[in-house]
């Protein structure tokens, strides 16, 4: 079943059911290098695999970049 979420501000469709860990794997992002927010709440790295995604979820995936 297709699942549409908002990922970093853009609509994103993936095959459900899915977890945050599965999403990162699909995006080829190593969880160690990013932080993930689900509906404005931080999801700790060790909880990614057990956190399911639901239709309409807003997900932010951020990382460090150069800055002052």
């Amino acid at each position: 079943m297709a699942l549409t979420i908002t990922l970093n501000g853009e609509p994103y469709t993936l095959e459900g059911p899915a977890t945050l860990a599965a999403l990162l794997e699909r995006l080829e992002i190593h969880p160690q290098t990013v932080a993930v927010e689900l509906n404005q709440d931080i999801v700790r790295r060790d909880r990614l695999a057990e956190t399911p995604l639901a239709e309409g979820d807003r997900v932010e995936v951020v990382r460090m970049i150069g800055g002052g």
Partner: peptide, 19 residues
């Protein structure tokens, strides 16, 4: 060293990260 926190660019994953 200071760093900023920004969205991962999902369109361009080729570049290496600051880390």
């Amino acid at each position: 060293v200071t760093v900023a926190i920004r969205r991962v660019n999902l369109a361009d994953r080729s570049r290496k990260s600051l880390l």
